[in-house]
């Protein structure tokens, strides 16, 4: 157990190091943008004095490494600076948006992950049957279609034609949970369709990969029926690749859903990022990117730990 904790601690340390490197990249990528930041922000209103004032206000007259350290120090305390457009603290602007994104991601994940694993086990059990082939074609189709297209199709059939669900998923804080779930349903469903396919195919492949192992043949020669061979004998050994692909998809649900948010007018962090880029609100862009990087690193760490926890050789050393 101590060994496991040490492993987790090492991974966490490495994750923090990665995050530090990423923060450097994010900060200086903005620096590298052509033109003067102050000019860009002011746009048409740029006169020599206003630009000079803006530069001083933004602290651009000081060297970049100093500003980086200040920014990093602030970020560590949760202070990402103030928005260039609204003047409000970045943390506040992001907090509600990020909470919305997490809500939608959790909503989709709670449906998609169990569904994907269940379907994966099922198609592994019924491999090469009609059911397997239909599932194969359906998942390939959903992987190959862009998510905004899937979204519009769902709006067409479940919203416009039938009127069952609202196509506009804008939330507000005073809605009840059921109301929120109802409003966000189509966006969640779109995401479910996009990520389920990937996870299900990996589950199927990971299980089928193990079916040629001697211990599966042993189970078969012990008279263990097919469903039990898959669920009890193959699945426990297939967790590592499945957990990895689940983690990747969860990361996508948090960081990659801009298009879906746009289609359903969902007030998530993706939209915020796109808006901020368009308006050159760089403190927000930097904060969003840092959050995305942290999300990826944390989920990958979780996947590594999960893979270790499901490996009996590591869990029960000699």
């Amino acid at each position: 157990m101590a060994k496991l904790l040490r492993l987790v601690a090492t991974r966490l340390g490495l994750g923090l190091l990665t995050l530090l490197v990423v923060s450097v990249l994010i900060f200086f990528a903005v620096e590298l943008l052509p033109g003067d930041l102050a000019e860009a922000v002011l746009g048409q209103a740029a006169t020599e004095e206003t630009v000079e004032a803006m530069r001083r206000q933004l602290g651009l007259d000081r060297p970049a490494p100093v500003r980086y350290l200040e920014w990093l120090g602030g970020a560590l305390r949760g202070d990402f600076g103030t928005s260039l457009i609204s003047g409000a603290p970045v943390g506040e602007a992001i907090a509600t948006r990020f909470a919305n994104t997490l809500f939608l991601a959790a909503y989709a994940a709670v449906i998609a992950v169990p569904l994907a694993i269940l379907l994966g086990v099922l198609v592994a059990l019924l491999r090469n049957s009609i059911f397997d082939r239909v599932a194969n074609v359906a998942t390939l189709t959903s992987i190959s279609s862009p998510e905004f297209f899937v979204g519009y199709i769902l709006i067409l059939f479940l919203s416009i034609r039938t009127g069952w669900f609202p196509s506009n998923a804008s939330l507000s804080g005073d809605m009840s949970l059921t109301d929120q779930l109802y409003r966000a349903f189509l966006s969640a469903l779109t995401l479910v369709l996009v990520v389920t396919a990937h996870m299900m195919r990996m589950t199927r492949a990971a299980i089928i990969n193990l079916l040629a192992s001697p211990y599966i043949e042993m189970a078969r020669l012990k008279g263990v029926p097919p469903w039990r061979r898959i669920v009890r004998h193959a699945l426990p050994n297939a967790w590592a690749p499945i957990i990895n692909v689940v983690a990747l998809n969860l990361a996508y649900l948090i960081t990659g859903v801009v298009l879906v948010e746009v289609v359903f007018v969902y007030p998530g962090i993706g939209q915020l990022l796109v808006d901020a880029v368009a308006k050159r609100d760089f403190p927000i862009v930097q904060a969003c990117c840092l959050i995305f990087a942290a999300t990826f690193i944390l989920l990958n760490l979780a996947a590594d730990v999960g893979a270790i926890l499901t490996n009996p050789r590591l869990r029960h050393p000699k």
Binding site: E217, M218, H233, N237, P312
Partner: peptide, 20 residues
Amino acid sequence: RGKRIAYVAQSAAASFNPAH
């Protein structure tokens, strides 16, 4: 199988399920 006819494989290390 397992009940009236049983099987003992060449490599026990590979034929026992590592997860149980």
